[in-house]
Design a binder for these strands. Structure first.
Lengths: 193, 193
DNA sequence: TTATTTTCATACCGATCGGTACATAACTAG
DNA sequence: CTAGTTATGTACCGATCGGTATGAAAATAA
């Protein structure tokens, strides 16, 4: 069984480049030429290693969720409702305003990719959001320290509404410092001492 | 001075169709063919009446701001800070979840149109957002009923962060009823009785 | 070496993009 | 009527889109 010609590139770093590009330019705004240029490979190599542009995006989204976006899952392990919410909102600020990553959130960007051919990846992003919301709601439902009269489902949606808004503000170019102030004010309003 | 051949279409309703399409599909996701089909005219007629796709979008955005989005300006005329904020947030819910209009907000959508050729219209949307934020901040700075210790600039940004989040939730397909509940909870947190 | 397998590089595919040239149709001024 | 002006419909422009056919290059197995 012969081994064949070895790869001239590292699929791992190539996928990171693709994630960076999709994050910064969106699914529809990123062409195969952009991708091959940034990844340092040709179109046939890209196709052989990652499949269709759509399949490549799915892999990039996976990496995003389990890498820069992993805080969203980890935050649910915090001991108190307050700490869970704080971690989620602060994590959103840091994620969307990172100095070495594109501004904004890949997931929120993708929801707004409304072209006809972007429908499949949009569904991916929507499913991802739905999973995150269900997880947070479950966490709040099981909490013993939820303020009385609070509906877990609505609170979960409000927290995600705020993190979504943070992503928009970041994509619109607001600075990390400004968004941190907004996030802290939101937390004071949401979780009075 | 001869009159020439009369138009076979109403530019006003044609612009409304274009706005609908841009709102639903985004700037990059809407092709000239989509536009001419929805407006019921040909490409030369479109170009003669509205100019470039980019110029057409600018006109559609104007109509959006002075039409469905007019509440944002009008809300600032309310008597109390509470009422200003309530009108802004409730207005955002109604705007982005209208049963006869596309889900989401044209402005927020456009901010996430990150392709290279969409840069000019993105700048338009950003300028529009900045103007709205400045106007709200000025309104809060001049208010006499602002809760003590509140920074007008940060509060203005938080309100817009929440309305941005509402737009994302609507674009992601959440129902009007759900978002209304989230908005009411946000208002209770933001403006305790 | 020779055969086999896998990747790489170039060049190309049909389709669609935004925008336009050109001829014709429909109107008004005289 | 004729002349002048504006709008319409068709057909087309070069560029780019996502994706691929093809053949040479680079590895292993014998």
């Amino acid at each position: 069984m012969p081994g064949g010609r070895p790869r001239a590139f590292d699929p791992d770093v190539a996928l990171d480049r693709a994630l960076e590009l999709f994050w910064r330019q969106g699914y529809e705004g990123t062409s195969l030429s952009d991708l091959t240029a940034a990844m340092g490979i040709n179109k046939p190599s890209l196709y052989a290693a990652f499949g269709t542009k759509e399949q490549l995006f799915a892999k990039a989204l996976d990496r995003y969720v389990s890498g820069p976006g992993a805080f969203a899952r980890e935050a649910l392990a915090a001991a108190t409702v307050r700490e869970v919410v704080e971690r989620l909102i602060h994590g959103a600020v840091e994620l969307t305003t990172g100095p070495r990553t594109p501004p904004g959130c890949l997931n929120v960007n993708t929801v707004h990719a409304c072209g006809a051919d972007a429908a499949p990846v949009r569904e991916l992003a929507l499913a991802c959001r739905m999973a995150g919301e269900v997880a947070l709601r479950r966490r709040l439902e099981q909490a013993l320290d939820l303020p009385p009269g609070q509906d877990p489902a609505t609170l979960a949606r409000l927290v995600h509404t705020i993190t979504d808004g943070i992503a928009v503000q970041a994509a619109a170019g607001r600075t990390r410092k400004e968004i941190r102030e907004v996030a802290d004010l939101a937390l004071r309003a949401l979780l009075p001492a």
